Amino acid sequence: MSSTATEPPDTGTPAATAGSPWRNPLVVTLAVLALAAVVVAGLAVRGAFGPYVPQPDSVDVGFAQDMSVHHRQAVEMASWARDHSTDPRVRQLAFDIETTQNQQVGIMQGWLGLWNAPILPDGGHMTWMADAMHSGHSTGGMDGMTAEGGMTKMPGMATTEDLARLRATPPPQLDTVFLQLMLRHHEGGVSMLEYGRDHADVAEVRNLASQMLTAQTAESQLMTSLLAERGAQPLPMN
């Protein structure tokens, strides 16, 4: 005895998809386009279609330019103290500063190359810190300003005479001169490090500025202690 299968009535719409808007080609197309727009917008912000390139007058570019200059002088002073100090603690400190800041200069110069930005800033230093400079906070106010609104010399930088005195001073007096100049140099860079940490657009720039600030704060504390052992005082900020 055979049985006859009963088929569902033909309504013109597949049973599995009846009433489902996602089977409507127009709805699906619009949903895909909307999702694609969201994804593209998110990836573009993160630089997924190429490295994010800051503007020439940005905090990121200015920080990399000025901090490279600032670091290079620290490396110059540290390398001299490393080779001529007779105190193992001073030699170790100088070696650490020289090694770390040389590496950081390489990182920052690499960024400038990727961004196709000049190695040195135009119109003086610290123009990327315009808000802090014009408010006079942590930068020595408006002294030493260029016509373009930058600084002719960054805070804490040693003069040509300072560097000559460092080279001419024999140990152990050399240690005191080095510690004084390097401590002032570190302290002079604090405002730039804080501003870069707080205002740079690129996360790597913010992170590096924060790392620099942490390391240099610890080094400044050590140098202050070493100066106190020698009965010497820190230099006033220039």
Score class of each variant (00 low, 15 high):
Gln180Arg: 12
Arg206Thr: 09
Gln180Glu: 12
Phe49Gln: 11
Pro118Gln: 12
Leu179Glu: 02
Pro14Thr: 09
Trp22Val: 11
Gly156Trp: 02
Ala117Met: 04
Leu30Arg: 01
Glu98Val: 04
Ala203Ile: 09
Thr160Phe: 05
Pro56Val: 05
Asn207Asp: 15
Gly50Tyr: 08
Gly106Asn: 13
Arg82Ala: 14
Asp201Gln: 14
Glu148Ser: 13
Thr214Tyr: 09
Ser225Thr: 14
Leu120Ser: 09
Gln55Val: 10
Ala203Val: 11
Gly196Cys: 08
Asp201His: 13
Ala232Val: 00
Met108Thr: 07
Val69Ser: 02
Glu7Asp: 13
Ser2His: 12
Tyr52Phe: 12
Pro155Thr: 12
Glu161Arg: 13
Gly50His: 09
Ala16Ile: 06
Gln55Lys: 14
Ala31Thr: 11
Asp143Pro: 01
Ser210Pro: 05
Leu166Pro: 01
Phe63Thr: 04
Ser20Leu: 15
Gln92Asp: 13
Trp128Thr: 14
Leu112Pro: 06
Val40Ser: 13
His71Ser: 01
Val202Ser: 00
Met151Trp: 02
Ser3Thr: 14
Val28Ala: 15
Thr160Cys: 02
Leu120Val: 07
Gly62Leu: 03
Ile119Ala: 15
Phe49Pro: 11
Thr152Asn: 11
Gln211Met: 05
Met182Phe: 10
Leu226Asn: 06
Ala232Leu: 05
Met182Lys: 05
Ala94Pro: 01
Val105Lys: 04
Trp115Asp: 10
Met126Tyr: 06
Ser68Lys: 03
Arg167Ser: 13
Gly140Cys: 05
Pro9Val: 07
Leu30Gln: 01
Met108Ser: 02
Thr17Trp: 07
Gln211Pro: 00
Thr159Ser: 15
Thr146Gln: 08
Met77Trp: 10
Leu208Trp: 03
Glu148Ala: 15
Val202Tyr: 00
Ala218Thr: 12
Met145Ile: 05
Ala117Pro: 02
Val202Pro: 02
Ala18Trp: 00
Asp66Arg: 05
Thr217Met: 06
Val45Ser: 02
Glu98Pro: 00
Ser220Met: 14
Asp175Phe: 07
Ala74Phe: 10
Glu7Pro: 09
His186Leu: 03
Ala15Ser: 08
Leu114Asn: 10
Thr11Ile: 14
Gly124Met: 01
Thr29Trp: 02
Thr86Ser: 14
Gly144Tyr: 03
Met157Ile: 07
Gly106Tyr: 03
Thr217Asp: 13
Gln109Cys: 03
Thr214Glu: 14
Gly106Val: 04
Pro170Trp: 05
Gly106Asp: 11
Asp162Leu: 09
Ser2Pro: 12
Met67Asn: 01
Met182Ser: 12
Gly50Val: 09
Ser220Gln: 13
Glu219Tyr: 08
Val59Glu: 07
Leu181Asp: 03
Val39Asn: 09
Met129Pro: 07
Asp143Tyr: 00
Pro8Leu: 15
Thr86Gln: 15
Thr100Gln: 08
Asn207Tyr: 03
Pro155Ala: 15
Glu7Arg: 13
Ala44Met: 14
Arg46Glu: 11
Ala78Trp: 03
Gly19Asn: 06
Gln101Glu: 12
Pro118Trp: 04
Glu229Cys: 04
Asp96Arg: 04
Asp198Tyr: 08
Gly12Trp: 05
Arg230Trp: 09
